[in-house]
Design a binder for these strands. Structure first.
Length: 754
DNA sequence: GTCGCTTCCTTTTTT
DNA sequence: AGGAAGCGAC
């Protein structure tokens, strides 16, 4: 029983809890994963649960893998526990019950881009922004478990048109026979509701259901949990309302707040002892999140010592910000720290660029988590579209994408005509199709057929795929890049299929020829994709498994290849990561960058959204074990121009007493009413007033603008061509830069926008 | 139907 | 700054 000895009282209580339902409110760093994994082990070992009767749901693949490996570390039998993300579970479920769900066996999962592509073919010539917005709303509707007919759909969008559009989209998707992300949750719920047998079968299989990060579940996921759990089930959810950061994609905090009333006989256990961070870091985190109104309210108890005071550094711009980070990191090495002790956190992926450039220059090894847009690259999506067409020939999104690439005379009108006809086949006579288009279509179908020939028609079971994956990964059979630089090579398994498809269809050649330099890169990417497919069986099951894996776990490709490169040794790397992606992680030393209004928090955030932004800051801060640094830029190069930045409101909220300040802020704080507050700023206060070269403006001047209302001059820059540029902070929170020329004498008006 | 030039528009965060 | 869509020319 020694594995239970490492737990504190609360944790042990949670592990040993029995009954109907358990809600574990687990603060940051309170050993939540340890509790779940230990509980899984305990259920198997002490309570005699069949591992296959336990289902553990998470929100990220990383979390699922981590959970699985840690549980297996305690109890090897935990390998048979189904530990998956909600979406991956949904895919698993639909794959096994596709017939009941009215889906073809080879259904493919559409990502947001594919959904938008389908939608745009419905919305004819609507601007892309409109299409994307509509796609977003449909996804949101599915998050809330709302169909086109639902009365409550107005909650998502009240326009009558939206209902029609949503219905049309659903119809098309059904005709194609594919599903989107939202369907992976929504369809299983519908299936379970309409099929008592299936429901009974599922409820008797899963005797115990555990959900991690429950605060980020949406309504549809809640419904799924409800359907899966029967009167005999044991349901245990773990979460922290302070770490709810996915409202924007439909997460519903009420799920966790109301859990006790939504499930029967709920016991609540709180884990508040924080083992991760030093007291000073926790204090800063707590000070900020305390400003939120909509929270259960809990105080973390620090177990560790006081530690080092968090440091706030004002820097000139993002270059200096990167230099500051590099200097910190390099300096720490002498003191015995490693690169991997460090994580650099930012609000948006785009911010990682500056760090990457500088770190490469200074030879600081790093890894970028999450932003690897490998999967979103044009050539990769092209190759996957070809594969998708083998799995589901009716996939019109895929067809539109690649049928005329390279051009073979199938233009938009020909494309429509072809898609009007039922199946994708040469012997179908398509009315009104030009000879050229017909010829092109035959070529395209011939290429697909070549790909199909590489697939073994035998139905090989999944175990064989798993076996192959195990065998091949890390072996030397992987091709690194072909010598003849215009084709992709495939060695074994599914890699052959990809090689044949991209070569025969001309996609490989198309990309190579289109651009001499980037063409080679693209070819290498295609090669990498083929390499990643090597472990998968060359049959329909292997193909579906591969597509599903990529669709649901976007980092899969690069990870598979990284594993081969690095073998057993863990590389010593600095981590560059978005704040959202850090959930569940911890690092000895953390730098949260870009603490500026408009960046973090984003300018348009208010009310509930602002509270979420605050929670995101809380999540970031509580990742740090020993040292925490915050950086804020005075100016930033954004949207192709330099913008004067205002320090983040979070810096003020965190409390000056909770941090040590380096450098000084020349910034105004938009959320303060006047200049007087500037002297209260951390770091020293009012910069010396500056006057423009034409003598017309001095920082601090009050101004009035017809549209923007009242404001104050917060910065003056001199431009070689345009003369003085006056940056004004308005009371409405916006900031604008103007030319000096048009002001009137009494400073009541300012002129044309710069 | 295809190619190339111009304009305008963009940036959250993720399964 | 950089990419995508739109427009006009072959």
């Amino acid at each position: 029983m020694d594995y239970l000895d490492v737990l504190n009282d609360e944790q042990r209580k949670a592990v040993l809890h029995e009954g109907a339902s358990l809600l574990i409110l687990a603060g940051a760093g309170s050993g939540k994963t340890r509790v779940i994994t230990t509980k899984v082990a305990w259920l198997i070992r002490e309570k005699g649960y069949d591992p296959r009767s336990i289902l553990a749901l998470t929100f990220t693949n990383k979390a699922a893998r981590e959970m699985s490996s840690r549980a297996q570390g305690i109890e090897p039998l935990a390998a048979s526990v189904l530990m998956r993300t909600f979406h991956s579970f949904g895919a698993w479920f639909l794959r096994r019950n596709h017939a009941l769900a009215g889906l073809p066996a080879g259904f493919v999962i559409y990502d947001d881009d594919d959904s938008a592509a389908l939608l745009s073919s419905i919305m004819e010539d609507a601007p892309r922004a409109e299409v994307k917005e509509a796609a977003r709303l449909i996804a949101r509707a599915k998050d809330y478990f709302l169909g086109p007919e639902d009365a409550l759909l107005a909650k998502v969008d009240h326009r009558l048109n939206f209902r029609k559009l949503y219905a049309a989209y659903e119809e098309r998707l059904k005709a194609i026979g594919n599903v989107d992300f939202g369907d992976l949750i929504k369809k299983p719920v519908e299936l379970l509701r309409n099929n008592a047998d299936l429901k009974r079968q599922m409820q008797s299989r899963f005797k115990c259901i555990l959900v991690d990060e429950y605060q980020d579940s949406n309504i549809a996921q809640f419904e799924l949990l409800k359907e899966l759990s029967g009167p005999e089930s044991y349901v245990c959810v773990v979460g922290d309302d302070d770490q709810s950061i996915y409202r924007f994609r439909g997460a519903e905090v009420r799920n966790i707040l109301d859990f006790p009333t939504l499930f029967d006989n709920v016991d609540i256990i709180r884990l508040v002892q924080n083992y991760r961070s030093t007291t000073q870091i926790l204090q800063l985190a707590g000070t900020v999140v305390n400003k939120n109104k909509g929270r259960l309210g809990k105080e973390l108890v620090a177990v560790r010592g006081s530690g080092k005071k968090p440091v706030l550094s004002y820097v000139a711009n993002q270059q200096e910000e990167a230099v500051f980070c590099a200097t910190l990191i390099k300096g720490s090495l002498a003191a015995g720290a490693q690169y991997s002790d460090w994580a650099i956190l930012y609000r948006t992926n785009a911010q990682s660029q500056t760090f990457q450039t500088l770190f490469t220059e200074q030879q600081i090894p790093y890894q970028v988590v999450g932003a690897l847009r490998f999967y979103e690259r044009e050539e990769i999506k092209d190759a996957l579209a070809l594969l998708s067409l083998l799995a589901n020939p009716k996939d019109e999104v895929a067809f539109r994408r690649v049928a005329n690439k390279p051009t073979r005379g199938i233009g938009p009108s020909a494309m429509d005509k072809i898609l009007m006809s039922e199946t994708l086949s040469t012997d179908t006579d398509i009315p009104g199709l030009s000879t050229k288009a017909k010829q092109g279509l035959m070529e395209f179908i011939a290429a697909l057929d070549e790909g199909k020939k590489t697939l073994n028609p035998d139905k090989t079971v999944r175990e064989v795929n798993a076996y192959m994956r195990h065998e091949v990964r890390g072996s030397s059979t992987v091709v690194r890049g072909s010598k003849i630089k215009n084709t992709v090579r495939g060695v074994e398994g599914l890699s052959k299929t990809i090689a044949v498809l991209v070569n025969e269809s001309g996609i490989a050649r198309y990309h190579v020829e289109r651009d001499e330099i980037s063409g080679q890169d693209r070819l290498e990417n295609l090669q990498e994709l083929a390499n990643a497919a090597t472990p998968y069986a060359a049959n329909m099951d292997g193909l579906l498994e591969f597509l599903e894996h990529l669709e649901l776990d976007r980092e899969a490709v690069s990870e598979a290849n990284n594993k081969i490169l690095s073998e057993n040794e863990k590389p010593d790397l600095v981590t560059l990561i978005t704040l959202h992606n850090t959930k569940g992680l911890e690092f000895p030393r953390v730098i949260i960058t870009g603490l500026e209004q408009g960046i973090f928090p984003r300018e348009d955030k208010q009310g509930e959204d602002m509270e979420e932004e605050r929670r995101l800051f809380y999540v970031g801060v509580t990742r740090a074990m020993n040292e925490l640094y915050l950086t804020s830029c005075r100016s930033r190069f954004l949207y192709g121009r330099t913008t004067i930045q205002t320090a983040s409101v979070f810096l003020k909220e965190a409390g000056m007493e909770n941090m040590q300040v380096l450098g000084s802020s020349a910034n105004n704080f938009s959320h303060y009413p006047g200049r007087e507050f500037m002297s209260t700023l951390p770091g020293g206060g009012v910069p010396a007033p500056k006057t423009s070269s034409d003598g017309r403006w001095t920082t601090g001047n009050k101004v009035y603008h017809d549209e923007m209302g009242y404001g104050a001059v917060v910065a003056i820059q001199e431009d070689e061509q345009d003369g003085p540029l006056i940056t004004v902070q308005f009371e409405n929170g916006r900031q604008k830069t103007f030319l000096s020329l048009y002001q009137s004498k009494n400073y009541d008006k300012i002129g044309s926008e710069y």
